[in-house]
């Protein structure tokens, strides 16, 4: 492999990682921006997505023909993506349940109780995953290999997993969809209005209670979607929620608190820079995102796009 090829491969890996991070962080940042709750259980929703995805995608891919020819390969890809979408859909009622049962009664309380509550949910969801899927890590071996057998970048002479290309494309579509949702649709604008001024939104007739539930469900949706998409190349394990959660925090801090655009830029930044760090100096893998965060905090304490609660 030439130097340029290595560079491109690592950068692509970084971009792919950045998109997954953005999917997780976007849910966390809208919940933080609108509900004013730091949801520590968000990482576990991601893990739950991976586990549900394991069951659903595993079941669905068992129904279709193994990916050998181009047409079966495309069907296979479609089925995997369908499974991921279904997983995300299943996470919606879960999110609604969590919000209405646990979060609703606690909005007016001291924030320490909110943090302890989400920490409690983190522990409980982790053990629910353990109860249903068992303590040992699970892997969807076939899905990753099956999609990678579709030649995409190998046509231009680059060895890069097709699945990651798929993730980048889906990430782009999701980002575009999210910005369209928040800027162009009525519901999206209502959510933004609630984020900017909750009382004023109530005064002009917005049902803030319902908006809160919707936002939390949206966060759960994207966490679950990210979990299902992140599953094929890796294992679903009980502790898989911790790292994305903390990295999402890093992304939110770098991007600017409550800014979706900031989260997007920061996720790609963290993804690509930490990938380069791993390539150049492997021990820096874990610490690289935090180093970026510390620098941003020193230079721009409000983050790259600090808008303090305004979305967009």
């Amino acid at each position: 492999m030439t130097g340029l090829e290595t560079f491109v491969t690592h950068t692509l890996h970084g971009i792919q990682y950045g998109f997954v991070l953005f999917l997780i962080a976007s849910g966390l940042t809208i919940v933080l921006g609108i509900l004013d709750v730091l949801n520590l259980a968000h990482g576990e929703l991601f893990a739950l997505g991976a586990y549900v995805g394991f069951t659903i995608i595993g079941y669905l891919t068992g129904l279709v023909a193994p990916p050998t020819t181009l047409s079966t390969q495309l069907v296979f890809l479609g089925v995997v993506l369908l499974g991921a979408a279904l997983t995300a859909a299943i996470l919606v009622p879960v999110g609604v349940f969590l919000e209405t049962t646990f979060f609703k009664p606690i909005y007016g309380r001291d924030e320490v109780y909110q943090i302890v509550l989400t920490f409690a949910l983190l522990l409980i969801i982790k053990d629910v995953n353990k109860l249903i899927w068992g303590p040992s890590p699970l892997r969807l071996q076939d899905a990753y290999g099956g999609i990678n057998s579709i030649p995409v970048l190998s046509r231009v002479g680059l060895t890069y997993p097709t699945y990651n290309v798929v993730i980048i494309v889906i990430g782009l579509v999701t980002v575009a969809g999210l910005f369209w949702f928040f800027n162009r649709t009525k519901t999206g604008r209502i959510i933004r209005a609630t984020a900017i001024n909750r009382e004023m939104a109530t005064a002009i007739g917005v049902n803030t209670g319902r908006t809160f539930t919707l936002v939390f469900a949206l966060g759960a949706f994207f966490a679950g979607f990210a979990g299902a998409l992140a599953l094929p190349p890796r294992f679903a394990s009980l502790d898989m929620g911790a790292n994305p959660l903390v990295l999402s925090f890093v992304v939110i801090v770098i991007g600017g608190l409550g800014s979706l655009r900031g989260a997007f830029v920061a996720a790609l930044l963290v993804g690509v820079l930490s990938r380069w760090a791993i390539w150049q100096y492997p021990p820096a893998e874990l610490a690289a995102p935090f180093a970026i965060m510390a620098i941003v905090l020193l230079v721009r304490p409000e983050g790259l796009f600090g808008t303090w609660g305004e979305m967009g």
Partner: peptide, 15 residues
């Protein structure tokens, strides 16, 4: 084996 969940439930009771 589900001690974390028990801790979580205890936390919910406290909260």
């Amino acid at each position: 084996a589900y001690f974390d969940a028990l801790t979580g439930v205890a936390l919910l009771i406290i909260v």
